[in-house]
Every structure is written in structure tokens, then in C-alpha cells.
Simulated scan of single mutants.
Amino acid sequence: MTDTSSLGARWLAALTDNAAAVPGYPASVRVVDGTLAGMAARFIAVVPDPDSRYPRARNGEVGLAEGWALARAVREAMSADDAAKARRAIVAVVDVPSQAYGRTEEAYGLHQALAGAAEAYACARRAGHPVLGLIVGQAMSGGFLAHGYQANRLIALSGDAVQVHAMGKQAAARITQRSVEGVEALARTITPMAYDIDSYASLGLLYRRLDVAAEDTSRAEAVRDALVDAIEDIGDTRDLADRHAREGRVASHEVRRRLREQWAG
């Protein structure tokens, strides 16, 4: 039985008026076809499945089944729209604690499943689908890279539950040989090490941070309006240049400038 208490599951339901999920996907990947301001849209979320055959993917992590299912959800929408000569919006509702760390997952090609999902989102974006990443909870590690990070625009809700990072605090503590408290202290002085959404917003990667608490699904209409605004802002663009144009990307601009100079030379 699929857990419906996660932020991802709750926001998916709120944004789609509790519409029925598209059948045929694993219990951990919920796909719902709906609309945004009258435009067709496909909403996708990874949700906890305590009955998953993979123990490392029972709490909303993106594992083998999830990676390939995400890729299929995106590519099936692309194929259907090719026939209809349309380009629906694709909304990745993001609440993922990580990828599924496990020997089984690694042995059977977790990296390929995650790459397949990321590539599908990128292909949809390049094909002209407005792809939106809506961060409603955790956006951690390879889970976020596979589900949401390839979006034209990233939008985040507010509050302590909304966190973005390359790895969880326990993993970061092991890698840096610190305690969790030490990692938290480091995050207060080094912005890229921080987990809170305000620090992430300061890096210039978000299109918008909404003043909507992650737990407050009653504000679904305001979030839908923000998604519609993002679609209009995307227009006909198909790349990620918008992220590099925002404040806070000074170093990124300089690195890219130097790379262009070296490439041209």
C-alpha cells in the first residue's frame, strides 16, 4: 500500500484536484494528467512505497524502478504529444530524500536508471515541452538530479521541510569526518554546504521561491498560478541559460567565459 502522507504525494493531489493516477506505473511513481490554466500538463511525483521489493527505495528515494518509470512517464507524454502535435507542460513534484543507496541497486545499474530519467526530462525540454521542477520537500542528491533538476524553471516552497543538497546530513558528516552538528555549523558559514531553501535560493538557481509553507496544501491555487507564470516565462526557450543569467552566478559566468576563450583559442 502506497504511503500518501509525504509532501510530494499531498501536493500532487492538491495540484490535480485528487485526480486519478495514470495506471501501469509502480506504486512509488505517481503520474497524473491534468491542466494548468487550460493547458494540458502531466504531473509526476516519487512517493514512499513501504511495500517496495527494494528496501532502499521505500521512503521516496529514486531507485531502479523509479528511475525507469520516470523516464517512461516523460517519454510516453512526448510520444502522445508528437502524434497530437502539441507540447504539454511536465511538472516534476519534487520530494526525494536521495537516490536508493544499495548493493542491489548498484549491481543492476542504478546509474543507468537515474541517467535515463534525467535524459528523458532533458529531451522533453529540448523538444519544446515546458518542464517545471516544483520543490515541495527534500531535493537531495541523485534523486533530485534524476527528478526535477533538468527543468526549464525551478520553483520552491518555503519552510524547514524544503531542503536542497548534494547529500543528506548523515552522509555529509561521514564524508567530511564531522558530526551532524559539525556539518550544520559548517553550513552556517559556507552557503553551498547549507540545506535550507533560502541559502539555495541565494545561489541563483531558482526561478522563484514562493511564500507558501510546504505543509500548506490549501495554497495550491497560488502554486498553480506560479507554475503558469513560469510556463509563460519559458516561452520558446529550450535550454538552461536562465539559471546562468540570475544573480549569484558571478563565478559561474567567469568559468564559462574562460572556457569559451580556451575553446576558441
Rank of each mutant, 00 (worst) to 15 (best):
A264I: 02
A19Q: 15
K169D: 13
R258L: 15
E232K: 12
S52R: 04
R53A: 15
L134I: 09
E119K: 13
T2A: 13
A57E: 12
V255M: 13
L7Y: 07
R219I: 00
G137S: 07
R243Q: 07
A117C: 09
A89N: 00
S6D: 05
L70W: 04
E184L: 11
Y121V: 10
A146T: 05
V74L: 12
R256F: 13
T35M: 12
R153Q: 15
A117I: 07
A100V: 01
D33G: 03
A245S: 13
S141R: 08
F144I: 07
A37I: 03
M167F: 06
A245E: 14
M167L: 13
I197H: 05
Y54K: 00
A20C: 01
F43Q: 05
G116A: 12
A120H: 04
H111S: 14
V250E: 15
G63R: 05
A89Q: 00
D242G: 12
D160E: 14
L227S: 01
R208T: 10
D229A: 14
V255D: 09
P50A: 09
R42T: 15
A226Q: 05
I175P: 00
S202E: 13
H129C: 06
L154C: 04
S218W: 01
E254L: 13
V164R: 02
L134R: 13
A230T: 05
E76G: 06
D211M: 11
A71I: 04
G60V: 01
A127Y: 07
V46F: 00
A89E: 00
G116E: 10
S158A: 15
G248H: 02
S98T: 08
A40R: 14
H147R: 08
G143S: 11
C123G: 06
H165S: 15
V22W: 03
P48K: 03
A100T: 01
D51N: 11
S79H: 09
A86Q: 12
A156L: 07
S79T: 13
A13T: 12
S52F: 02
R10Q: 12
S79M: 13
G168Q: 03
H165V: 03
R249I: 01
A245P: 00
P55M: 01
L114I: 14
Q150V: 00
K169N: 12
H111Y: 06
G109A: 06
V93P: 05
S199P: 04
I135F: 05
V212L: 09
A146D: 05
N59E: 14
R238T: 14
S218M: 04
R87Q: 10
D81M: 05
I234L: 06
A21N: 10
A80S: 10
D196H: 10
G128M: 12
I190E: 13
A194R: 08
I44A: 07
G204H: 06
I197K: 03
R224M: 03
M167K: 08
D229V: 00
F43R: 04
L203T: 10
V212I: 15
M78Q: 14
V46M: 02
G182D: 08
A213D: 14
A118E: 14
A83F: 02
L15M: 03
A173G: 07
G109V: 08
A194H: 03
R249P: 02
D81I: 01
S6K: 01
G204K: 07
S202W: 01
Y121A: 10
E61Y: 11
A19K: 15
L210V: 08
A92E: 00
V47I: 15
D216H: 11
D216F: 01
L210S: 10
Y25P: 06
A156R: 08
E247T: 09
G67T: 09
D198H: 07
